[in-house]
Structures are given as C-alpha cells and as structure tokens.
C-alpha cells in the first residue's frame, strides 16, 4: 500500500464547470421560446448556426494552442457564449453577421486571453459590441413581431439568412419608435389603442411582464425583451408611484 497526500477538503460536491454552463443554457430556454413565438424560427437558426461555428472555432483554436480540444468543448462554455450572442442578434440576421460575431467572441473575446476563465470581458458581449459598431444597419434590422407582420416559415428563414436580398426588408416600427413618432395621444391611450401594443403584442407584454417578475435574469438576456418589460412596468400605476415617475 502506498499513501496519498492530498489537501483538504477531501470530499467535493457534484459541481462541474459543464454543469454550471448547462444550467445557464437551460435558463436561456424560456427566453428563446418567447423570441421564437414572437419572431419565428430566426433566433433558433441563429443559435444553431452560431453554435456550430463556435464549436468548430473553439476546437481549432484549442488544438492550435496545444490543449485538449475535447476537454475545451465538453465544458459547454463555448455554447453559452454562442447562445448568448445569437439570442442578442436580430432574428434573420445575415449569415456573415453571425459568423463575424461568433469569431470575434471566440477569438478576440476569449481565446486571445487564454481561454475559459481568463477573459476579462464577457466574450458574447465583445462579439455583440464589435457587431453593433461595425454593422449598425444589420444589427438594428429587427423583424416585426407576430401580430404586426407575417412571421416567416423555415424555408423563408433559411433563404433570408443565407441568401439575403431575396426577401425585402421586414422591419417595422419598434414600440419605442411608436412613442417617439406619437404627437397627439396620451401615453395611456397609446397603450390601449395602438395595434403594436394591443392584440398579440399586448398579450406578449403581459407574458414578458411575468417573466420580468419571476425570471428577471432571463428577461435581461435580450434587449428587446427588456424593453418590453420596461413598457409593462411603465403601465403599472403602483410601479409608477413607487418610482415617482
């Protein structure tokens, strides 16, 4: 028998990096579902396509850096990065936008600093910021939510993403734009009368409001959802009082 010398504690919990990352991925699910309900399969396509690019990049880079690529992939951190970034990108964004964003996130956001744990910034946000500065037009080209326009099917989605130009732009006024353009109506009237904020969209605000109350972190995941939350918040008289607005 030979003895082993190990430092305490000798027991350890079940926690793994991959399980932390898995939990984050699960936490994005409700947000992704709502995005899909609003905007159709565009977000899902973003996530799947971005994820493939990200995994391939991570694999190649870790192999180049002389690390074990399978270990690097299996901690799921790369999927968290790509998923967070792709949720934040507009649905139906052109394929090259996703590729540039993911490459920036993985290469400049993460791997140049030494990989997992050594990145000073959130890699997904590095990718997002670079895209926002470089491609403001594409980054603000959000599709109209269900209720304002027809949500494209899967075939249209693929064409739109990989062969841009075959479909004309499907952008429409965002609710914030609606407020800006409004000149005559009271805010309350606007909330009850304008088509953007009633009907399907109106129900949506209610759903998102629930998410805000129960799952605030995930509402923060997407700027659009966050905006929606703010809207609902503004409608609630108790909140208005609480904040002396």
């Amino acid at each position: 028998m030979s003895l082993l010398r190990v430092t305490s504690p000798h027991a350890s919990g079940q926690g793994q990096v991959s399980s932390v990352m898995r939990d984050v991925l699960i936490a994005t699910l409700p947000g992704v579902l709502i995005l899909t309900a609003y905007f159709g399969p565009g977000t899902l396509l973003n996530i799947v396509f971005g994820g493939l690019i990200a995994v391939a990049t991570e694999y190649a880079i870790t192999a180049l850096r002389g690390r074990d690529p399978r270990v690097a992939i299996s901690d799921l951190s790369i999927l968290v990065t790509s998923t967070l970034l792709c949720i934040a990108l507009p649905p139906y964004a052109p394929w090259w936008l996703i590729v540039i964003g993911v490459l920036t996130a993985v290469l400049l956001g993460k791997q140049v600093f030494g990989g997992l744990g050594y990145n000073p910034f959130n890699p997904a946000m590095v990718g997002y910021v670079v895209l926002l500065i470089s491609f403001p037009v594409q980054m603000s080209a959000w599709a109209s939510p269900r209720g304002l326009a027809e949500v494209p099917g899967l075939g249209d989605t693929l064409r739109h993403v990989f062969a841009p130009g075959t479909i004309d732009a499907v952008t429409a006024a965002t609710p914030l734009d609606l407020l800006r353009q409004n000149t005559g109506l009271l805010f309350e009237d606007l909330l009850t009368n304008s088509p953007e904020l009633t009907g399907w969209g109106g129900i949506g605000w209610f759903e998102v409001n629930l998410a805000f109350l129960r799952w605030r972190p995930l509402a923060v995941v997407s700027p659009d959802l966050y905006l929606a939350c703010a809207h609902r918040y503004a409608r609630c008289p108790r909140c208005l009082r609480a904040h002396r607005i």
Partner: peptide
C-alpha cells in the same frame, strides 16, 4: 506552513511507504 498549490496535472503526492509499513 502550506505552500501555494502548483499548477500541474496531478493534485496529489504518492508517498512510497509501502512494504516497510505493512
């Protein structure tokens, strides 16, 4: 006193006390 952990693959030392002890 304890020294800082080394960055290395194995986290434990094997102490060869084999036969003598037994």
């Amino acid at each position: 006193h304890w020294s800082l952990p080394e960055d290395r693959a194995s986290r434990y030392d094997v102490i060869a006390t084999d036969a003598a002890t037994r």
